[in-house]
Write a protein that binds this DNA or RNA. Sequence first.
RNA 1: UCCUCAGUAGCUCAGUUUGGUAGAGCGCCUGACUGUUAAUCAGGAUGUCGUAGGUUCGAGUCCUACCUGAGGAGCCA
Length: 441
Amino acid sequence: MLFFRKKGGLSVDFVYIKDVSKYSEKEITIKGWLYNKRSSGKIHFLLIRDGTGIIQSVAVKGEISEEEFQMCDKLTQESSIIVSGVVREDDRSPEGYELSIKHIDIVHISEPYPITKKEHGVSFLMDHRHLWLRSKKQHAILRIRAEAIKAIRDFFDNRGFTLIDTPILTPSACEGTTTLFETDYFGEKAYLTQSGQLYNEATCMAFGKVYCFGPTFRAEKSKTRRHVTEFWQVEPEIAYADLEDIMGWAENLIIYIIERVLEKRKDDLKTIERDTKLLENIKSPFPRITYTEAVDILNKKGEKFKWGGDFGASEEMIISESFDKPVHVTLFPSSIKAFYMKSSPEDEKLALGVDILAPEGYGEIVGGGQREDNLEILEKRIKEHNLPRKAFEWYLDLRRYGSVPHAGFGLGLDRTITWICGIHHIRESIPFPRLLDRVYP
RNA sequence: UCCUCAGUAGCUCAGUUUGGUAGAGCGCCUGACUGUUAAUCAGGAUGUCGUAGGUUCGAGUCCUACCUGAGGAGCCA
């Protein structure tokens, strides 16, 4: 139980730091934590954060009780405090406003805080991720993430899509291409989902336009700045849509997310020193090339790349750096794509799929395409890919009962955030990253 | 799974080349300072040198194995 204003006699409002400008020359109360402290003998500068911002508050000897002035001296970094005082505009304060302290209550004196004002190594910070989130930069990134999630949901909700949650525990692999996390499901094997797509194909036949948005899991032993084992994807699926349609949807979604973040999270982008000019440039139309044209680009730039292979990290980098916007790459060889992808009617060897590569070398952020809607062809594909037919019976039903052309895509949230924030490593884009050899904290 | 680098004070690191009794800055503790901006100034405490072996009169330093972390590749999104 906190004793709110136990030493004050005046009636004052409790406000968040983001709102202090509305309270100039008024007495308010702030509940927060000590971000930093600078002291002279007769004056203390306390930087207080409350999750919405940081404000400098000033305790002057003689202006508050001697007991409370002494208490300020005892405060350690990240101690939790409740402070009352008058909001004043002051050019000398780093934030433009500061609080002249009248009363201070200490809620808890923090033990010596591990994350100090000096630099730290990545490993140490990752071990203290639960505290690192309080730091300015990490705080800004996660607020941008929250805004992007809201933008994604608004985008689909306002355009006639229904959010349908797909299961996380699944009886079999969705694509058969990746390694999955296996769990013991009451004596049977179950796997953490790598995608909600197959279930989306069922729900889009019921609802028309659907999307799922949740965590997905891949047990690949990837050790790069672009991979986490638990990552968030938004996956729309649309009945009666073709490849061309979903390329438009994906492009508009990306633009919508960027616009929203630029509009609502400008301060946070500034905190992380992102060059927003590069983001302001993300407008329609995005360049569109085929896989075959991408191979030409690679070979022109001196890479010896043979038609038919999948792009690795360096290939993706070269292709994406050839453009200053995200680029659609379409019509991959069917042989390197999943079993459910529909082949081009003009060339059986090509799949009606699209990957979107983010600029600045951030790699693939969207993968999608048109799904095979013909029962016989799909049965053949399942056989060719050595997939357990029995597990896909329900999926084949969708081609038996009113099959229609349909298409969808997945957008990787964490990679998108990494790109929007212009940060080096995906691990800072998610609150508690799951990496190869790291599941703590 | 492979390649490269690293592990020394709470944190960031120097010391390793050339073996000879453990160092700095920050943080912490004490004191000074009425406008600080990673505040400053003076003084103080702090170590199983990743682990286990080996070489040597003597190992943080050289050798071997292992553990942990980071960077990258592959795989993958």
